[in-house]
Computed example of a mutant assay.
Amino acid sequence: MFGSETIDKPTNRPFTPDVDAYRNVNHQTAANNSSYNLAVTANNFKFMQLWRTNLAVDQKLPGGVIGTFEAMYSKDINSVYFRNVNLNTTDGTALTGADNRMRYTTPRIYGAAKPTPENPNISDAIVMSNTSKGYSYTLTGTLSKEFKGGFLLISVIPIQIQDPLTTAVLSHNRCGGIDMYPETRIMRTSPIQLTW
């Protein structure tokens, strides 16, 4: 709560093994700390839990071909869920067209025009809690045939469907599973998905 700074390509921050060397470089104190954000954890927060089930079948087919089918299903029991409790839900504009949800342009409901330590400007108040809405399933079909001399030919067709609510707090507020539409409780998924 003693401020932060962003410096591109700093020349005044050479490496030092002293972990306190650059702490509170702006000499902020509680007396002049009037703008900040908060990140808190719900009292009933649970560590992440995931149910995963898979089933696979190998079958010998004519011509020495082996066919494999695998299905895998994952379901969040307790996934991490972020919500901005400082989102101003009274200052919204309905989107036009097929998507007529509310869009909130004012990021906060609490904060003064000229913030003071007694009436600070709190930009975000992110609460980390749980949800069970995420899931994914994968279907994979494989055909393989081994030839003389050790040559192996494999053909794979994977299909993956997922609704991941991804698991640093403010970055999740902008790109992870958070409550973007508090009045309708619609969850948004991450635009960042890793597949391999």
Results as ranks from 00 to 15, higher is better:
I122C: 10
F151V: 15
A113I: 08
I126Q: 07
I157P: 02
Q160E: 03
M180T: 13
G150Y: 10
G177Q: 01
D124V: 12
G176M: 03
P117Y: 05
P115H: 06
M128F: 09
Y135G: 01
I159W: 07
S132A: 03
E118W: 09
N121R: 15
F151C: 11
Y181M: 05
I122D: 06
F147S: 06
S132M: 00
A112G: 09
Q162W: 07
Y135A: 07
Q162K: 09
Y104F: 10
K145H: 07
I161R: 15
I186P: 02
R108N: 14
F151Q: 10
A125K: 11
L153R: 10
S132P: 08
S171E: 10
A113N: 13
N119F: 05
L153A: 10
R185E: 05
V169W: 11
K145D: 02
I186R: 09
S144I: 04
A125Q: 11
S132E: 01
I126C: 07
G149R: 15
P164Y: 06
K148N: 15
K133F: 04
G141L: 02
A113L: 12
T138F: 00
S155V: 05
M128N: 10
A112L: 08
N119Y: 02
S136N: 05
N119E: 00
N173G: 11
T184D: 05
G150R: 11
S155P: 05
K114A: 11
A98P: 09
T106I: 12
S155D: 02
D99S: 07
D163A: 12
I161M: 09
E118H: 10
T142C: 04
S132C: 02
T140K: 05
P182C: 00
Y137A: 01
M180V: 14
P120H: 02
R103S: 14
L170K: 12
M187G: 08
T105A: 11
T106S: 15
N121Q: 15
Q160M: 03
I122Y: 14
T106Q: 13
N121D: 12
L152Q: 11
T131R: 04
G176K: 04
R108V: 10
H172A: 09
I161Y: 11
I186T: 08
S171K: 12
